[in-house]
């Protein structure tokens, strides 16, 4: 079993995580596309290690208005999944799924928020079941929680959790948009160092 530190991540390991992220995100995006009736294009998956001083800007600008759906991942991994949608995209998602005509995020009611949480839940389900298939890792998730606010403020939550002992955070990032470029979002899996070791070890057996 590995005792690596992700600060010294190798090119080969980055490729392994990218490949895993690619398959898992692909499944998650297919689910999301079906859910809202759009075709989604996914960017190349990136494996990023960012300094805490720069973490508030990883989704673009720290003050950008976004909807963040966050899920804690337990079991064999200690991780978090964050679905971040630009405010406009969150509105579009709610309108598509509920047949509404909401114009402002401020007009979201409890049902609208729970629909977004459920979207996060479904994505997490596809992403993690795919990860489970080729790593064998057993994963549980928390109930998703939503925050609609500045990107930096939302990111402070995982940052505090995952940059507690280190001054960096490791995450696998997928950006996506629909083919009409109305819906824009980012999907992020954040891993702590032990979880990074476990994922690499289990992928090593498989790849």
């Amino acid at each position: 079993m590995g005792e690596r530190n992700y600060q010294n991540i190798t090119e080969e390991e980055i490729d392994m995580l990218k490949e895993a992220g690619n398959i898992a995100s692909g499944n998650a995006m297919t689910s999301l596309g079906k859910l809202i009736g759009c075709t989604l294009d996914m960017s190349v998956v990136q494996v990023r290690i960012e300094k805490i001083q720069e973490l508030t800007d990883i989704l673009g600008d720290a003050e950008e208005y976004i909807a963040g759906m966050l899920i804690n991942v337990y079991g064999d991994l200690n991780a978090m999944l964050l679905l971040a949608l630009e405010a406009e995209s969150a509105i579009k998602t709610v309108n598509l799924m509920l047949g509404k005509n909401i114009e402002h995020v401020e007009d979201f009611d409890e049902i609208d928020c729970s629909v977004l949480c459920e979207t996060g839940n479904i994505l997490a389900g596809s992403y993690l079941s795919s990860l489970n298939t080729f790593t064998g890792l057993e994963l549980d998730v928390s109930i998703p929680q939503i925050s609609i606010d500045m990107a930096g403020a939302i990111l402070s939550y995982p940052a505090i959790e995952f940059a507690r002992n280190d001054n960096t955070m490791l995450f696998i990032e997928t950006e996506f948009k629909d083919t009409n470029e109305v819906l824009n979002g980012t999907y992020i899996l954040i891993l702590d160092n032990d979880s990074y070791n476990k994922v690499i070890d289990s992928l090593g057996k498989w790849l």
Binding site: Q53, L55, A62, E63, D149, M150, G152, A153, I154, A163
Partner: peptide, 19 residues
Amino acid sequence: MADLNVVKDPHILTTLGLG
């Protein structure tokens, strides 16, 4: 985040998106 700075008049210090 996890940063600090000091300045004198007339400059402005800002931090974005405190959660």
